[in-house]
């Protein structure tokens, strides 16, 4: 009987990337077609920032949904082009070296490398293509109708506690042994994802995750400047 595969699950924000989802939202909103539209959309993103901050250590789904409402009625062309630009010019520079090291180590250990991100697919797909170090990507997708964004995210929305359930489904589909798999997360909402695998690891954890990691005796990695 052949041995089942194992995977390494990485949360992008905080583990691989130093920038979060709000920066991407602000970039896209601030580069809308009309000048007035830019101000309005940016204002909307700014209003959702406190929600994101408040829910940051629990469930971020609501905040992510709100932030993406700022793209309502923006064209798919513009979102695709700006996303590629953001991935190439900004996000690529914010890839953390320590994060790359963790990926390399996991690769050496023979894990399938899976990246989970709250960001939009239009941003993460070109980034992953450029980095070329991930086997699979799971991220959020905007809904489009007649070439324009409705502002809604397609379900399931990445960023909440759903990652735990998602990781089990993923393991079933790809015949992955979760007991031998590893996961790296940095925020409270990653708790269920980390607890689903045999080898969880908290990276630069926030208060909620740090407390839980200590209680569960999970390793904690702190990136140094």
């Amino acid at each position: 009987m052949t041995e089942r595969k194992s995977a390494a699950f990485f949360r992008a924000e905080g583990v691989i990337l130093s920038r979060g989802v709000m920066a991407a939202s602000a970039y896209l909103a601030g580069n809308a077609q009309r000048l007035g539209e830019r101000a309005l959309r940016l204002g909307f993103v700014a209003l959702t920032a406190p929600v994101h901050g408040l829910l940051g250590q629990n469930d971020r789904t609501l905040a992510t949904r709100l932030a993406n409402l700022a793209f309502r009625n923006m064209t798919e062309d513009r979102i695709a082009e700006l996303s590629e630009e953001y991935a190439r010019d900004i996000l690529e520079d914010s890839v953390l070296d320590q994060g790359r090291e963790l990926v390399k180590r996991s690769r050496k250990q023979g894990h399938r490398i899976v990246l989970l991100s709250d960001n939009l697919a239009s941003i993460m797909e070109p980034l992953c293509e450029r980095l070329g170090i991930f086997d699979d990507l799971v991220c959020n997708r905007l809904e489009f109708r007649d070439g324009r964004a409705t502002g809604k995210l397609l379900d399931p929305v990445v960023g909440g506690h759903g990652s735990g359930r998602w990781i089990r489904d993923y393991a079933d589909q790809h015949d992955i042994d979760l007991g031998r798999s590893v996961a790296y997360g940095g925020h409270g909402p990653d708790l269920l994802m980390l607890s689903a695998v045999g080898n969880p690891c908290a990276v630069n954890p926030d208060y909620t995750l740090r407390r839980s990691a200590r209680e569960a005796d999970w390793p904690i990695v702190e990136y140094r400047e």
Partner: peptide, 16 residues
Amino acid sequence: DRACDLVALAHRRHLR
């Protein structure tokens, strides 16, 4: 209108 948006994006890419 889509063509107008695409032209603007193409110029943006070049000028940046």
